[in-house]
Protein backbone atom coordinates (compact mmCIF):
# COMPACT_ATOMS: atom_id res chain seq x y z
CA UNK A 1 0.00 0.00 0.00
CA UNK A 2 2.68 2.43 1.10
CA UNK A 3 4.98 1.05 -1.55
CA UNK A 4 2.33 1.74 -4.19
CA UNK A 5 1.83 5.29 -2.96
CA UNK A 6 5.55 5.94 -3.11
CA UNK A 7 5.72 4.38 -6.56
CA UNK A 8 2.92 6.60 -7.75
CA UNK A 9 4.64 9.65 -6.32
CA UNK A 10 7.87 8.66 -8.03
CA UNK A 11 6.07 8.11 -11.31
CA UNK A 12 4.34 11.49 -11.09
CA UNK A 13 7.60 13.23 -10.28
CA UNK A 14 9.40 11.63 -13.20
CA UNK A 15 6.57 12.57 -15.55
CA UNK A 16 6.51 16.13 -14.25
CA UNK A 17 10.25 16.54 -14.63
CA UNK A 18 10.03 15.04 -18.10
CA UNK A 19 7.35 17.54 -19.11
CA UNK A 20 9.38 20.45 -17.79
CA UNK A 21 12.30 19.15 -19.81
CA UNK A 22 10.13 18.98 -22.94
CA UNK A 23 8.81 22.49 -22.27
CA UNK A 24 12.33 23.88 -21.99
CA UNK A 25 13.41 22.14 -25.20
CA UNK A 26 10.28 23.52 -26.84
CA UNK A 27 11.16 27.04 -25.63
CA UNK A 28 14.69 26.73 -27.01
CA UNK A 29 13.28 25.42 -30.31
CA UNK A 30 11.01 28.49 -30.54
CA UNK A 31 13.97 30.82 -30.03
CA UNK A 32 16.04 28.94 -32.61
CA UNK A 33 13.24 29.02 -35.18
CA UNK A 34 12.27 32.65 -34.70
CA UNK A 35 13.80 33.82 -37.98
CA UNK A 36 10.56 33.51 -39.92
CA UNK A 37 8.60 35.44 -37.28
CA UNK A 38 10.77 38.49 -37.96
CA UNK A 39 11.61 38.02 -41.62
CA UNK A 40 7.91 37.79 -42.42
CA UNK A 41 6.71 40.15 -39.73
CA UNK A 42 3.22 40.08 -41.21
CA UNK A 43 2.73 36.68 -39.57
CA UNK A 44 3.56 38.15 -36.16
CA UNK A 45 1.38 41.21 -36.77
CA UNK A 46 -1.54 38.93 -37.58
CA UNK A 47 -1.08 37.12 -34.26
CA UNK A 48 -0.72 40.44 -32.42
CA UNK A 49 -4.20 41.22 -33.63
CA UNK A 50 -5.58 38.04 -32.09
CA UNK A 51 -3.65 38.13 -28.81
CA UNK A 52 -3.11 41.86 -28.33
CA UNK A 53 -5.88 43.86 -29.99
CA UNK A 54 -8.60 41.42 -29.00
CA UNK A 55 -7.50 41.60 -25.35
CA UNK A 56 -7.76 45.41 -25.36
CA UNK A 57 -11.35 45.71 -24.18
CA UNK A 58 -11.00 43.45 -21.17
CA UNK A 59 -7.67 45.04 -20.23
CA UNK A 60 -8.93 48.63 -20.51
CA UNK A 61 -12.19 48.05 -18.67
CA UNK A 62 -10.56 45.99 -15.90
CA UNK A 63 -7.81 48.59 -15.53
CA UNK A 64 -10.34 51.38 -15.16
CA UNK A 65 -12.31 49.55 -12.48
CA UNK A 66 -9.25 48.38 -10.55
CA UNK A 67 -7.99 51.98 -10.51
CA UNK A 68 -11.37 53.28 -9.36
CA UNK A 69 -11.50 50.76 -6.53
CA UNK A 70 -7.93 51.65 -5.56
CA UNK A 71 -8.97 55.30 -5.47
CA UNK A 72 -11.93 54.59 -3.18
CA UNK A 73 -10.22 52.17 -0.82
CA UNK A 74 -6.99 54.15 -0.77
CA UNK A 75 -8.85 57.31 0.11
CA UNK A 76 -10.73 55.58 2.92
CA UNK A 77 -7.48 54.34 4.47
CA UNK A 78 -5.35 57.43 3.85
CA UNK A 79 -7.84 59.96 5.21
CA UNK A 80 -7.69 58.17 8.58
CA UNK A 81 -4.11 59.42 8.79
CA UNK A 82 -4.93 62.75 7.21
CA UNK A 83 -2.67 62.01 4.24
CA UNK A 84 -5.17 61.77 1.40
CA UNK A 85 -2.79 63.88 -0.69
CA UNK A 86 -0.72 60.74 -1.07
CA UNK A 87 -3.56 59.01 -2.93
CA UNK A 88 -1.74 59.55 -6.24
CA UNK A 89 1.32 57.74 -4.91
CA UNK A 90 -0.72 54.85 -3.63
CA UNK A 91 -2.67 54.37 -6.86
CA UNK A 92 0.31 54.78 -9.16
CA UNK A 93 2.73 52.69 -7.12
CA UNK A 94 0.36 49.75 -6.72
CA UNK A 95 -0.50 49.79 -10.41
CA UNK A 96 2.90 50.38 -11.93
CA UNK A 97 4.80 48.01 -9.68
CA UNK A 98 2.35 45.16 -9.14
CA UNK A 99 -1.23 45.30 -10.30
CA UNK A 100 -0.54 46.51 -13.84
CA UNK A 101 1.86 43.72 -14.84
CA UNK A 102 0.25 40.99 -12.72
CA UNK A 103 -3.47 41.54 -13.32
CA UNK A 104 -2.91 42.30 -17.00
CA UNK A 105 -0.91 39.06 -17.24
CA UNK A 106 -3.64 37.05 -15.50
CA UNK A 107 -6.26 38.49 -17.85
CA UNK A 108 -3.97 37.84 -20.82
CA UNK A 109 -3.50 34.23 -19.71
CA UNK A 110 -7.21 33.56 -19.60
CA UNK A 111 -8.12 35.62 -22.67
CA UNK A 112 -5.28 35.02 -25.11
CA UNK A 113 -3.41 32.08 -23.54
CA UNK A 114 -6.40 29.78 -23.55
CA UNK A 115 -7.24 30.78 -27.13
CA UNK A 116 -3.70 30.00 -28.26
CA UNK A 117 -3.77 26.57 -26.62
CA UNK A 118 -7.16 25.70 -28.08
CA UNK A 119 -6.11 26.85 -31.55
CA UNK A 120 -2.80 24.97 -31.60
CA UNK A 121 -4.41 21.92 -29.99
CA UNK A 122 -7.13 21.83 -32.63
CA UNK A 123 -4.61 22.34 -35.41
CA UNK A 124 -2.77 19.33 -34.05
CA UNK A 125 -5.92 17.24 -33.58
CA UNK A 126 -7.08 17.92 -37.15
CA UNK A 127 -3.59 17.04 -38.44
CA UNK A 128 -2.98 20.56 -39.74
CA UNK A 129 0.44 20.60 -38.08
CA UNK A 130 1.34 17.20 -39.59
CA UNK A 131 0.12 18.45 -42.96
CA UNK A 132 2.37 21.47 -42.62
CA UNK A 133 5.34 19.26 -41.79
CA UNK A 134 4.59 17.12 -44.82
CA UNK A 135 4.58 20.29 -46.92
CA UNK A 136 8.14 20.89 -45.72
CA UNK A 137 7.09 23.84 -43.57
CA UNK A 138 8.27 23.76 -39.97
CA UNK A 139 5.22 24.39 -37.76
CA UNK A 140 7.43 25.75 -34.96
CA UNK A 141 8.74 28.46 -37.26
CA UNK A 142 5.51 29.11 -39.16
CA UNK A 143 2.82 28.73 -36.47
CA UNK A 144 4.40 28.72 -33.02
CA UNK A 145 7.15 31.36 -33.14
CA UNK A 146 4.96 34.21 -34.53
CA UNK A 147 2.43 33.60 -31.75
CA UNK A 148 5.23 33.59 -29.18
CA UNK A 149 6.68 36.92 -30.30
CA UNK A 150 3.25 38.47 -30.70
CA UNK A 151 2.53 37.63 -27.05
CA UNK A 152 5.91 38.86 -25.85
CA UNK A 153 5.45 42.19 -27.66
CA UNK A 154 1.80 42.63 -26.68
CA UNK A 155 2.15 41.88 -22.98
CA UNK A 156 4.12 44.99 -21.87
CA UNK A 157 1.90 47.22 -24.01
CA UNK A 158 -1.21 45.74 -22.42
CA UNK A 159 0.29 46.09 -18.92
CA UNK A 160 1.15 49.75 -19.59
CA UNK A 161 -2.37 50.38 -20.86
CA UNK A 162 -3.79 48.68 -17.77
CA UNK A 163 -1.69 50.88 -15.46
CA UNK A 164 -2.46 54.08 -17.38
CA UNK A 165 -6.14 53.28 -17.39
CA UNK A 166 -6.02 52.42 -13.67
CA UNK A 167 -4.32 55.70 -12.80
CA UNK A 168 -6.97 57.49 -14.82
CA UNK A 169 -9.65 55.58 -12.85
CA UNK A 170 -8.00 56.51 -9.56
CA UNK A 171 -7.87 60.13 -10.73
CA UNK A 172 -11.57 60.05 -11.67
CA UNK A 173 -12.64 58.76 -8.27
CA UNK A 174 -10.05 60.52 -6.12
CA UNK A 175 -9.91 63.95 -7.73
CA UNK A 176 -13.14 64.36 -9.67
CA UNK A 177 -15.51 62.50 -7.36
CA UNK A 178 -14.08 62.81 -3.85
CA UNK A 179 -12.20 66.04 -4.31
CA UNK A 180 -8.57 65.30 -3.48
CA UNK A 181 -6.44 68.23 -4.60
CA UNK A 182 -5.50 67.69 -8.24
CA UNK A 183 -2.09 69.33 -7.93
CA UNK A 184 -0.90 67.23 -5.04
CA UNK A 185 -2.37 64.08 -6.61
CA UNK A 186 -0.08 64.40 -9.64
CA UNK A 187 2.93 66.06 -8.05
CA UNK A 188 3.21 63.65 -5.14
CA UNK A 189 2.87 60.81 -7.61
CA UNK A 190 5.61 62.23 -9.81
CA UNK A 191 8.06 62.79 -6.99
CA UNK A 192 7.56 59.27 -5.64
CA UNK A 193 7.41 57.14 -8.78
CA UNK A 194 10.85 56.56 -10.22
CA UNK A 195 11.43 55.67 -13.84
CA UNK A 196 14.09 53.03 -13.36
CA UNK A 197 12.95 51.64 -10.04
CA UNK A 198 9.23 51.43 -10.71
CA UNK A 199 8.26 51.84 -14.34
CA UNK A 200 11.15 50.02 -15.97
CA UNK A 201 10.92 47.16 -13.48
CA UNK A 202 7.19 46.93 -14.17
CA UNK A 203 7.91 46.65 -17.90
CA UNK A 204 10.56 43.99 -17.30
CA UNK A 205 8.07 42.04 -15.21
CA UNK A 206 5.42 42.14 -17.92
CA UNK A 207 7.90 40.98 -20.57
CA UNK A 208 8.85 38.00 -18.37
CA UNK A 209 5.16 37.23 -17.80
CA UNK A 210 4.53 37.44 -21.54
CA UNK A 211 7.30 34.93 -22.21
CA UNK A 212 5.99 32.57 -19.52
CA UNK A 213 2.33 32.70 -20.56
CA UNK A 214 2.88 32.28 -24.30
CA UNK A 215 5.42 29.49 -23.81
CA UNK A 216 3.04 27.60 -21.50
CA UNK A 217 0.05 28.18 -23.79
CA UNK A 218 1.91 27.10 -26.93
CA UNK A 219 3.47 24.08 -25.23
CA UNK A 220 0.17 22.87 -23.81
CA UNK A 221 -1.45 23.20 -27.23
CA UNK A 222 1.42 21.48 -29.02
CA UNK A 223 1.52 18.72 -26.44
CA UNK A 224 -2.26 18.20 -26.16
CA UNK A 225 -3.62 14.74 -26.90
CA UNK A 226 -5.43 15.00 -30.26
CA UNK A 227 -8.91 14.50 -28.84
CA UNK A 228 -11.70 16.78 -27.65
CA UNK A 229 -10.95 16.07 -23.98
CA UNK A 230 -7.26 16.46 -24.65
CA UNK A 231 -7.67 19.97 -26.05
CA UNK A 232 -10.12 21.11 -23.39
CA UNK A 233 -7.91 19.71 -20.63
CA UNK A 234 -4.89 21.48 -22.12
CA UNK A 235 -6.81 24.76 -22.26
CA UNK A 236 -7.67 24.51 -18.58
CA UNK A 237 -4.11 23.59 -17.71
CA UNK A 238 -2.85 26.64 -19.61
CA UNK A 239 -4.94 29.02 -17.52
CA UNK A 240 -4.07 27.32 -14.22
CA UNK A 241 -0.38 26.81 -14.89
CA UNK A 242 0.28 30.21 -16.40
CA UNK A 243 -1.62 32.04 -13.64
CA UNK A 244 0.41 30.23 -11.01
CA UNK A 245 3.59 30.87 -12.97
CA UNK A 246 2.79 34.60 -13.17
CA UNK A 247 2.22 34.87 -9.41
CA UNK A 248 5.29 32.82 -8.52
CA UNK A 249 7.51 34.72 -10.97
CA UNK A 250 6.12 37.98 -9.60
CA UNK A 251 7.29 37.05 -6.12
CA UNK A 252 10.76 36.12 -7.33
CA UNK A 253 11.12 39.24 -9.50
CA UNK A 254 9.82 41.54 -6.77
CA UNK A 255 12.26 40.03 -4.29
CA UNK A 256 15.12 40.77 -6.67
CA UNK A 257 13.99 44.21 -7.81
CA UNK A 258 12.82 45.91 -4.65
CA UNK A 259 15.16 44.51 -2.04
CA UNK A 260 17.60 47.35 -2.55
CA UNK A 261 19.97 45.12 -4.47
CA UNK A 262 20.44 47.90 -7.02
Amino acid sequence: MLKQAIERLGNRTLQGVGRIGFAIRFFVAILLHSGTAFRRFGLTIREMYFSGVQSLIIILVSGLFVGMVLGLQGYETLQTYGSEDALGILVAMSLVRELGPVVAALLFASRAGSAITAEIGLMKATEQLSAMEMMAVDPIARVVAPRFWAGVISMPLLAALFSAMGIFGGYLVGVQLIGVDEGSFWSQMQSAVDFEQDILNGVIKSVVFGIAITTIALFEGYDAPPTAEGVSGATTRTVVTSSLAVLALDFVLTAFMFRGLS
Binding site: L122, E127, Q128, S130, A131, M134, A136, V137
Partner: peptide, 28 residues
Protein backbone atom coordinates in the same frame (compact mmCIF):
# COMPACT_ATOMS: atom_id res chain seq x y z
CA UNK B 1 13.92 19.18 -49.32
CA UNK B 2 12.75 15.63 -50.06
CA UNK B 3 9.25 16.36 -48.78
CA UNK B 4 8.79 18.98 -51.47
CA UNK B 5 8.67 16.00 -53.84
CA UNK B 6 5.86 14.47 -51.79
CA UNK B 7 2.25 15.38 -51.29
CA UNK B 8 0.03 13.92 -48.66
CA UNK B 9 -3.72 13.79 -48.38
CA UNK B 10 -4.75 13.41 -44.76
CA UNK B 11 -7.76 11.44 -43.69
CA UNK B 12 -10.04 14.41 -43.19
CA UNK B 13 -8.17 16.78 -45.44
CA UNK B 14 -6.38 18.69 -42.66
CA UNK B 15 -7.06 21.97 -44.43
CA UNK B 16 -5.89 25.08 -42.59
CA UNK B 17 -9.13 26.27 -41.07
CA UNK B 18 -8.06 29.91 -40.82
CA UNK B 19 -7.44 30.28 -44.57
CA UNK B 20 -9.66 30.24 -47.63
CA UNK B 21 -9.57 27.37 -50.09
CA UNK B 22 -7.43 29.53 -52.37
CA UNK B 23 -4.89 30.33 -49.64
CA UNK B 24 -4.75 26.67 -48.63
CA UNK B 25 -3.72 25.62 -52.11
CA UNK B 26 -1.40 28.60 -52.43
CA UNK B 27 0.27 27.85 -49.09
CA UNK B 28 3.24 25.83 -50.37
Amino acid sequence: RLRRKMGMLFQFGALFTDMTVFDNVAFQ
